[in-house]
Simulated scan of single mutants.
Amino acid sequence: MHGPDAEMSRLDFERWRARNPRNRAAYAEMEQLSRLSQRLGETALGRAHLEQRRHPSFLVGPGARIAFATLVVALLAGAAALPLLRGGATAPVIAAGPLATGLGEIRSFRLADGTRVILDTDSAIEQEFTTQARVVRLVRGRARFDVVHDAGRPFMVEAAGRAIFDRGTLFDVALGRKGVRVSLLRGAVEIRNRASPGSDVAPVARLVPGQVFADAPAAGAAQVSAAPGGADQWVRYMLSYDGASLADVVADANRYADRKISLGEPELATVRVTGRFRATPTENLAALLAAALNLRVERTAHGEIVLHKR
C-alpha cells in the first residue's frame, strides 16, 4: 500500500481494514516493522550483512540458492508488470486553469494546493481557488481526487448540480448518462444539492470508505450502496461490473477508442454483465464480451465492431 500501484487496491484494502479491529492492528504492526527494517542497513550488523552479500560466497548452500531463485522470480515478475504500469496514469504535473484529457488518455495532475487529480479518458475540470475555498468543477467524464487537507479552505467538487464536500479524502466523481456517481476510497465526503461552501443545507448523503453514491440507481437499488470490487481500477484502464447492462458496458468502452462497439439487436442492451475487463484495445474487449455472453463479433467495412446474437 506504499508502492506505486497502491491505488489499484485502495478500495479493497480500506474495506478489509475497516472490517475488523484486528485487521487494523495487524496492518499497523506491519507498517512499524517495515519502517524498522528500512533502518537495519544503518546498524553495524546490517552493514556487516550487506558486506557479506557482496561476495560470491552468498550462493553457497541450498537455502541461499532458494533465496536467489526467489529473487530472480520476483525480478522477472516485476519486469512483466512494467507494461501494465506504463499503461496507467502518467506522473503528475503541476497545473492550473482548465484541465482535460483526450480520447483514450488517462493523466495525472497536481493542483496548486498539492491535491492530486487523475482524469479519465475524455474528461475535463475547471478550477477556482480563492483564499476562502477551493472549488473544482467536473465538466465531463470522471476524475479521482486525492485531496490535501486545509481546514481554512474547504475543498469542493461541483458536478451536475451536486456538491461533494471533502473531509481529507480520496474519492472518484463521474458524470454519466444517469447523472453523478461518487465513490469513496478513503476519508469522508458529504454530498449536497447546492454548491456553496458555507451552505447549511443538509447533506443528501454521507459516505464512508467502500461506499458509492448514485444519482439514479438501478431499479430496487439504494442511492448509497457498497462499491463493487475493482471499481477503483479505472486508473489502470480496467472496467469492473457487477450486474451492469451490456449497453452501459459498451458505452463505457466506447469512451476510450475511435473504433466503437455497437449492439446488433436492441434486446442485447439489457443483458447483464459481471466481470473485469481492460477497456483497450476495443477489439479485445469485444471478443471477451462475445465469448462470455455467447455472442458473435462482426466487423463492418467502416471499422465498426458489432455484437450480434448467435
Rank of each mutant, 00 (worst) to 15 (best):
V271P: 00
L76G: 11
E304H: 14
A253H: 04
L184V: 07
E158P: 00
A227T: 13
S262G: 11
G46L: 09
A247S: 13
G152S: 08
A133R: 09
V136L: 07
A188I: 01
N20K: 03
F145Y: 07
R22K: 12
L293Y: 00
R310M: 03
A95W: 03
F277L: 08
R15H: 12
P62W: 08
Q132P: 00
N23Y: 05
S245H: 07
V235N: 03
A253C: 10
A163R: 07
Q52V: 00
M30L: 14
V93H: 11
V189Q: 01
E265W: 10
G114D: 08
R53H: 00
R186K: 15
P98I: 01
D172T: 08
R54N: 05
V182G: 05
H149W: 12
S37L: 12
G78K: 09
P92H: 05
M156V: 12
R134E: 03
E128N: 15
W234C: 11
G303T: 13
T70Y: 13
Q223G: 15
A151E: 15
E298W: 02
R86D: 13
V249T: 05
L75V: 15
L288R: 14
G303Y: 09
A6V: 02
L185S: 11
R35D: 15
V93D: 02
R47G: 02
G210F: 05
S37C: 05
P281R: 09
A286I: 06
R22N: 13
Y241D: 01
V135Q: 13
P217I: 09
E267R: 10
A96G: 07
V273H: 08
T121D: 10
L263M: 04
A279Y: 00
V208M: 06
P83V: 09
A231I: 12
I305Y: 09
M238W: 09
E298K: 10
P98D: 06
A227S: 14
A44H: 15
A253Y: 10
D122V: 10
D120T: 08
F13H: 10
L239H: 03
A81I: 08
A64H: 06
L76P: 10
H49P: 00
I191C: 03
Q127W: 06
G168Y: 04
E304W: 01
A28R: 14
T115E: 01
W234I: 05
I305N: 08
G63W: 07
E29C: 02
A124S: 15
Q32I: 06
V173N: 02
